[in-house]
């Protein structure tokens, strides 16, 4: 399984908010264990969906401060089961967005019902830490299609 937990970005305001989707397929191997006969998307993956969505929102600013990485999870609540095949709609609102850190209020809905929420804290890791050829295809395709531009990474 690739660790890409966002299929598509529906709405994006760089550095401010994002709405994205993810559908976990029933044939993913993890559902053999989580749980036998009762497959549901693990809460840690729902949390990662929120983190990846908020991270893309921050990264879309193309700031030289670096790439957003999850540092802390607060107030995580899981209200409903999410079976494979259901589309999770992930929303992240960036609360504070500073040079050193950012915070986001996030939630996931399935069929317009809230299934989980969390407050996430991000730090920034320099772009040089990552493979030079790395491209976030989900984010870049949204930016291309919607003609949203930012400054290049590393630009002052």
């Amino acid at each position: 399984m690739r660790f890409i937990l966002i299929d598509k970005i529906l709405k994006l305001s760089p550095g401010k908010s994002i709405v994205a989707t993810k559908t976990m397929q029933a044939d993913e191997e993890l559902f053999r264990d989580h749980f036998p006969g009762f497959p549901v998307v693990p809460g840690v993956l729902l949390t990662e969906m929120m983190a990846q969505a908020a991270g893309k929102c921050l990264d879309s600013e193309k700031s030289p401060r670096g790439r957003a990485m999850l540092g802390k999870i607060s107030n995580a609540t899981f209200r409903r089961w999410v079976p494979p095949g259901e589309t999770a709609v992930i929303t992240a609102e960036i609360d504070s967005n500073r040079e050193e850190f950012a915070t986001a209020k996030c939630h996931v809905e399935v069929e317009e019902k809230r299934v989980c929420s969390a407050d996430l804290f991000f730090v920034f890791v320099p772009h040089e830490q990552f493979a030079g050829a790395y491209v976030d295809e989900v984010l870049e395709s949204y930016l291309r299609e919607n003609r949203i531009q930012g400054s290049e990474p590393g630009a002052a």
Binding site: G71, K72, S96, R98, E100, F101, T103, F121, V123
Partner: peptide, 11 residues
């Protein structure tokens, strides 16, 4: 990380 958490909470 604690320093950043302090900064965020003060803010």
């Amino acid at each position: 990380m604690g320093v950043l958490a302090l900064m965020a909470a003060l803010d």
